[in-house]
Design a protein around this nucleic acid. Structure first.
Lengths: 153, 153
DNA sequence: ATAAAACCTGAACTTAGCTTGAGGTCAATG
DNA sequence: CATTGACCTCAAGCTAAGTTCAGGTTTTAT
């Protein structure tokens, strides 16, 4: 009978190991734990021990961060999973679709801004009257009625 | 002979007036001044008095901020103008082109990220091997040679 | 058995871009 | 001429996402 290697198989990870393998600093892992984004078991001597899943969880956190989702929101999304489990493939699909939409919105916003900026570069209108880049509190707002060109975000 | 209305014509503005007309809080104007982005003259009683140009200057600052340029960089760009003058139309063209390029880069980055995310939603690979979203410190980096898929930025 | 490496907690520090508060002065109005 | 409202300075506080430090404990390797 083949015995599984007792050392290499499914051993829990120390915080240093998770740091090395995830590319996240130990201090950041502590921080995530304080914020409730990850959890750890403790060894007899009170050191953190992580099940391997934590790597997946941290990977999800990092992706969401790259998309620009604040940690607090990531935490909420993860906490909303049944029993706070680490995302399954199904969960991941839902989360990433949600974050993808957020990404779309951000791209959209920047592209609209770019268009406005282009108008403005062409016309030099920053100095003049009806610049869509200038905000509603400006001259326009006090110079009588007419189109306001409000552009909330 | 028509005399210009002595009140309404070219009077300098108080900080409150600038705040109302620019949509920027008084405290923020103070802050910009400390950071060297705007300057003020002082009244006999040590209150700030702004030439009207300041509105243009603040408008430029706000646009740059919307593009995502850090205040410090905005300050440098403004300071680089001859004698720290308020941007002329020519200056504005140069500045806005510069910032437009930065905007392009940011949009580009986000779109590449979106593509990667799309791949990853499709394949669910976050959990598996060769996900372009996962960083180089991860599993891949330690599991032998082969494509590294490094993706700096 | 001991030394080095890794780990623990809690508190303070960091950057950006402001806001808020305290304590006091200036300016416009009735 | 007295009362507001606007203004002044300086210091401290805020949020996000961590990092750094001090002082002490645990694990691992020799």
């Amino acid at each position: 009978m083949t015995m599984p290697d007792p050392v290499a198989v499914g051993r829990d990870l120390t915080v240093g190991e998770v740091a090395r393998r995830s590319g996240v600093a130990v201090s950041a892992l502590h921080f995530y734990e304080r914020k409730g984004l990850i959890r750890s078991l403790r060894s007899a001597g009170n050191q953190r021990r992580y099940p391997r899943e934590v790597l997946r969880r941290v990977a999800v956190i990092k992706v969401a961060q790259r998309v620009g989702i604040p940690l607090a929101a990531i935490g909420e999304a993860l906490a909303a999973l049944p029993e706070g489990r680490t995302p399954t493939e199904e969960d991941w699909r839902a989360l990433s679709l949600m974050w993808r939409q957020e990404l779309d919105r951000r791209i959209d916003r920047l592209m609209r801004l770019r268009d406005q900026l282009d108008e403005c570069i062409g016309c030099g209108c920053l100095s003049v009257k009806a610049c869509r880049l200038r905000n509603p509190h400006d001259v326009l707002a006090r110079e009588g009625p007419g189109a306001r060109l409000l552009d909330p975000d």
